[in-house]
C-alpha cells in the first residue's frame, strides 16, 4: 500500500510538472539518500560501547543462541549510556541502554533482546529507515506539487501524504507485533518478553506519577524531554502483552499436540 501511494505521488508530480518535476524528484531522492548515509554513519557515538564476552557472558551467549534459532547472523550488541530503559536495533546491531539493566532482570532483558532479534529477522532494520525517509520524500513531493498551481493536484497530493502517514503508522505497529511474535519463537521462556513489557509499562506509568504527584514544589527533571507525538508508532503495552499471552498459549498448545 505504501509503495502504491508513493508511486501515485510520483506520477502526480511528473504529470503536472513534467521534466522539472522529474528533476525535483531525482534531487529529493538523492538528498535523502545522502542524509540517510550521513545519519547512519553517525548512529554510533561515544556513548555506545560494544558488548564483549567477558562483560556479560550470559547475555553474549544468549544473543548468539537466539540468533541461531532465528537463523540470522549473531547481531552486535552495544550498550548505551542512558539511565532510561530503552532498546532498539539498526542494521544487524542491537542497542541496550544501561537503564534497562537497572530495571529489568536478566531473563526480561533477554525478552527485550529477542524482540530486537525479531526486528532484524523481519528485516525491519532495513524497512523502518526506508519508510521513515519515504515520509520526507512524500513531503518534498507534496511541496513540489504546489508549483503546479493546480488546486486539484495539490489537494490530491496532500491526501496522498495523509494516506502515507496513516499507512506508515499502521505498518510500524504491525511490525512491532510481528517482532513480538518472532521473539516468542527464539526465547527459551516466551513469557520473558511479557514480563519485560509489564515492568517497562510500570516504569513509564510511575515516571508520570512521580512527575504529577510527588513533591509538587520541586520540578522533577528526571523526565527526558518528550516530544509531543502526533501519531504513536508503537502499539500500547497492554495490547502487546495480551497478544503475547495468546501467542504463547497457542505455542504451548501446539507443543503439547506435537
Amino acid at each position: 500500500m505504501l509503495r502504491l501511494i508513493a508511486f501515485v505521488q510520483l506520477l502526480l508530480v511528473v504529470l503536472y510538472l513534467g521534466r522539472i518535476g522529474l528533476v525535483g524528484v531525482f534531487l529529493a531522492t538523492l538528498c535523502l539518500m545522502v542524509l540517510y548515509l550521513w545519519v547512519t554513519k553517525r548512529s554510533l557515538d561515544k556513548i555506545h560501547t560494544p558488548l564483549k564476552y567477558e562483560d556479560m557472558p550470559w547475555l553474549y551467549d544468549s544473543v548468539a543462541r537466539m540468533a541461531n534459532r532465528a537463523k540470522i547472523k549473531t547481531p552486535k550488541v552495544y550498550i548505551l549510556e542512558d539511565y532510561i530503559p530503552n532498546a532498539y536495533s539498526f542494521k544487524d546491531s542491537i542497542v541496550l541502554s544501561l537503564g534497562l539493566f537497572e530495571v529489568l532482570q536478566e531473563n526480561e532483558i533477554l525478552g527485550v533482546v529477542a524482540h530486537e532479534i525479531g526486528h532484524i529477522k523481519n528485516k525491519d532494520t532495513l524497512l523502518f529507515p526506508l519508510i521513515s525517509y519515504g515520509r520526507y520524500w512524500m513531503i518534498t513531493l507534496s511541496m513540489l506539487t504546489l508549483f503546479s498551481f493546480n488546486l486539484r493536484a495539490i489537494l490530491v497530493s496532500l491526501i496522498l501524504l495523509l494516506a502515507y502517514e496513516h499507512q506508515r503508522v499502521r505498518f510500524f505497529k504491525k511490525r512491532e507485533f510481528m517482532a513480538d511474535k518472532a521473539a516468542l519463537y527464539v526465547l527459551e521462556r516466551p513469557f520473558d518478553l511479557k514480563d519485560a513489557l509489564e515492568e517497562l509499562s510500570y516504569y513509564e506509568d510511575l515516571r508520570i506519577k512521580v512527575k504529577e504527584n510527588v513533591l509538587p514544589g520541586i520540578e522533577p527533571k528526571i523526565e527526558r524531554k518528550q516530544k509531543k507525538v502526533f501519531m504513536e508508532m508503537h502499539p500500547p503495552y497492554d495490547e502487546r502483552i495480551w497478544k503475547i499471552m495468546v501467542e504463547a498459549a497457542a505455542l504451548d498448545l501446539m507443543g503439547k499436540l506435537n
Binding site: 529489568l104 516504569y203 527533571k221
Partner: peptide, 28 residues
Amino acid sequence: RSTVSILMNRLCERGLLEREVSKGRGGM
C-alpha cells in the same frame, strides 16, 4: 526495581546522589 531506579535518578537531580558509569567485572 523500576521504583528504586526512578527514585535514585530523582535523587541525582536533587543533587544528593551522583551517577557514573562503572566498567569492571560484570560489564558496564
